[in-house]
């Protein structure tokens, strides 16, 4: 393994910014996503960036990319085992639905309306709802 030998030795203090700072690995990826009612929806399996194309030169002074959506679903498998799911199979949680980020990512919408919860809905409607007692609180 060739070790990098050009690591900069003197580091400057980063410029101050006008908002909270999030490091993706530390504060977003693999966090639990909870809907507006407090129901767990999924985890943040990946993040989609808007405003930058892979391997295309970035023109000087271009606007910084922004998070367009949190991703979930098959993307977890490819993140673990490699490869990339086709864009059509990505399940998106649009960033404009996110209401807060702390030790969980909270949404401002109900999970019922999200495509991210279709498996849960399918299992619920095809199996769990049909077993007697599934709709009631435990006694």
């Amino acid at each position: 393994m060739n070790r990098p030998r050009n690591t900069p030795t003197s580091l400057k203090s980063p410029p101050s910014v006008g908002g909270p700072v999030l490091d993706a690995q530390l504060h977003l990826l693999d966090r639990q996503v909870i809907d507006v009612d407090g129901l767990p929806v999924t985890t943040v399996d990946d993040i989609e960036l808007e405003g930058v194309e892979a391997d295309l030169p970035i023109s000087l002074g271009a606007r910084a990319p922004v998070i367009s959506a949190l991703l979930t679903g098959p993307v977890l498998g490819t993140r673990i085992f490699g490869g990339r799911p086709p864009s059509s199979r990505l399940i998106r949680l649009p960033w404009h639905d996110v209401s807060a980020v702390d030790v969980t990512v909270r949404l401002g919408v109900r999970s019922e309306s999200l495509s991210a919860s279709w498996v849960e809905r399918w299992v619920r409607d095809k199996i769990i709802r049909r077993i007697p007692g599934g709709k009631h609180d435990p006694d």
């Binding site: 909270p20 490091d23 530390l26 960033w95």
Partner: peptide, 19 residues
Amino acid sequence: DARFVLDQPPGQLLAGARL
């Protein structure tokens, strides 16, 4: 890692996250 700053015009609920 990638660092984001929440200083973009808000979508609906939370400020946009800029790289």
